[in-house]
Nucleic acid binder design. Structure first.
Length: 545
RNA sequence: GGCCCCUUGGUCAAGCGGUUAAGACUCCAGAUUUUCAUUCUGGCAACAUGGGUUCGAUUCCCGUAGGGGUCACCA
């Protein structure tokens, strides 16, 4: 077989050479240890936690090293393509604080190593495919789906490994040039297969997280180009990461088993392998068993879930960082005020077993993150989220902006910060009592206080109420009335001698709190009163006279 | 089934031949607080298993079990 002729028959219109591509996509001029990496999602319209998980690693590694982080759209599968998926993906990534230096954008490309959508790179793949054909490393395969099924059945019956290799590949491998031309002329569709060596050798592949992996050397005639001329993932990965000059390939561990194919391609093309970094699969626990997170059953797999629940992006980041890098929590404890970007991420500290997504842990991380924010920043984040998901409350927030910020600032001034905000959704609930429009009488008055005592208390309270009183003056008055009514001023006294009192100051303050906020659990009464303003305070209390 | 990856408390995880086997989340108890959210103190709870190697294995090697992945013209 004359491979030059075969290459011309298969790729008559391809004139470029690998050398042209080397020139077109020169090596990047970066610092020695700069990391160039990417995420390569398929535009299926579904953005999941795993996408973010890998993006976080890549983003950190690249930006910590003054490298490049880019977005490549792996759209080689026409069937999975969903309209608008790229926009969805980019906006989700941006929402969660992942920004790309180059790559696909919503309406095009940015950067000089593109195009960044694989379907638009057909010409590039064909140059390499033609080159490989000239080297005798490929052949066209005319096997139909039915024929392949039959082969698989036969292999199954014989308990052999499935696939096109060895004798099973012989029929198409040994086709003469004339036969090939005839088949093509007859309109038979073909795929380009890699001509693998029939071997039992092993190869060692280094993985940055897992160390050396021992795998069997590839002996499969895997597909390089599908019948529509579009490459498979394997071929596209090797070509793209070479010409886009990736130094690191970060991807899920489901790719480990196809490593031999990729290594084989890098070797036959004489290209340097990137540093591989295979990440663990995110898991979920169910009935005491760990299992992979599933798209159908687990809403928390979708990134959209975290947006809808109003879990702020920083919290999701920090949560992922705690899963990803075992020393992040330690660092966070030592540097409570630092930005998470200051944390030095290392591959060495990466976990390799599948981590469980623990929503309790996320909630805790989220509380911490929110407790570190200023009231103004909280207001911005909350407003932005509400505009998307709770427009009624967004309107209130903007109508009463000053009050909302003051409300968010309650318990935030001192050394000990209140930690009652978990996420934006819950924050709306939490803040609702500050506005008459969303105020609700949720909890009933304490049973310990009779109706007449209640009325008497509120009468005295209102008479003595001075909105300008400071916290201690205010509380002194409350204690005074409490005592006069025959309630214990010190909770401990009541605890020791409940028979001597009608109740304790706890019941009294609860009553004020419930009148003011509609609920038994709320922040400091005096502070809340100051935020509400005199008019609202008096109105809410008068209702109980 | 073949090949590959993984295995320390309920969860995430330190450990890298000798430790009372850290820490975080959850849960429980107590303390502080005018409620709550905090904060503090304490508690429950782990090296999957069997063989080696070694004076000594959670740590190194082999097997077994369990979990996961993959075996497409899907990524």
């Amino acid at each position: 077989m004359n491979y030059q002729e075969l290459a011309e028959v298969l790729f008559p219109d391809v004139s470029g050479t690998p050398a042209d591509l080397e020139q077109r996509f020169p090596e990047r001029q970066l610092a020695e240890h700069a990391v160039v990496t990417r995420i390569g999602p398929s535009p299926t319209g579904f953005v999941h936690l795993g996408n973010l998980y890998n993006a976080v690693i890549g983003e950190r590694l690249a930006h910590q090293s003054e490298g490049v982080f880019y977005l490549r759209i792996e759209d080689t599968d026409e069937k999975r393509k969903v309209e608008g998926a790229v926009e969805t993906l980019i906006s989700a990534m941006n929402y969660f604080g992942v920004h790309f230096d180059e790559g696909a954008t919503a309406d095009g490309d940015s950067g000089s190593y593109g195009p960044y959508r694989q379907r638009q790179r057909k010409e590039i793949y064909h140059i390499i495919a033609k080159y490989l054909t000239q080297q005798g490393k490929t052949y066209p395969c005319f096997l139909t789906a039915e024929e392949i099924d039959a082969i698989r059945e036969e292999q199954k019956a014989k308990q052999e490994n499935p696939g096109i290799y060895g004798t099973y590949a012989e029929k198409n491998r040994s086709l003469s040039l004339a036969q090939i031309q005839e088949n093509i002329k007859a309109g038979k569709s073909w795929v380009l297969r890699f001509r693998a060596e029939d071997t039992e050798e092993s190869i060692l592949v280094n993985d940055a997280v897992r160390g050396e992996l021992k795998m069997p050397r590839n002996n499969m005639d895997f597909v390089l180009l599908k019948s529509d001329g579009i490459p498979t993932y394997h071929f596209a990965h090797v070509v793209d990461d070479h010409f886009m000059r990736s130094t690191h390939v970060i991807r899920g561990e489901e790719w480990i088993s196809s490593l031999p194919m990729h290594v084989e391609l890098f070797n036959t093309l004489g290209w340097n392998q990137p540093v591989y970094c295979h990440t663990a699969t995110l898991m979920k626990i169910e009935d005491g068993k760990k299992r992979k997170l599933s798209k159908r059953k687990d809403p928390e797999l979708a990134l959209a879930y975290y947006q809808q629940e109003g879990i702020c992006p920083e919290a999701v980041w920090e949560f992922l960082l705690t899963l990803l890098n075992s020393n992040f929590e330690e660092w966070r404890l030592a540097n409570p005020d630092s930005d998470y970007h200051d944390f030095q991420y290392t591959i060495e500290k990466m976990s390799i077993s599948g981590a469980l997504v623990d929503l309790d842990k996320l909630r805790d991380v989220s509380k911490e993150v929110l407790s570190r924010m200023t009231a103004e920043k909280l207001y911005q984040g909350l407003s932005a989220w509400c505009q998307e998901y709770q427009t009624d409350f967004a309107a209130l927030l903007s109508k009463y902006q000053d009050r909302a910020i003051k409300a968010l600032n309650v318990g935030r001034g001192g050394a000990k910060v209140r930690k009652d905000l978990e996420n934006w959704k819950q924050s709306c609930q939490f803040l609702s009592f500050y506005f008459d429009e969303s105020f609700k009488q949720q909890d009933a008055m304490p049973e310990e206080i009779s109706e007449s005592d209640r009325k008497e208390f509120f009468k005295a309270y209102l008479e003595s109420y001075q909105h300008s009183d400071d916290s201690s003056a205010w509380f002194a008055k409350v204690k005074d009335i409490t005592e006069k009514l025959g309630y214990a001023v010190k909770p401990k006294d009541f605890k020791k001698h409940p028979e001597d009192y009608k109740g304790s100051i706890i019941h009294i303050t609860n009553m004020i709190r419930i009148a003011l906020t509609g609920r038994a659990n709320a922040p400091d009464i005096w502070e809340v009163s100051q935020v509400l303003g005199e008019e609202i305070v008096l109105n809410r209390l008068k209702k109980w006279l």
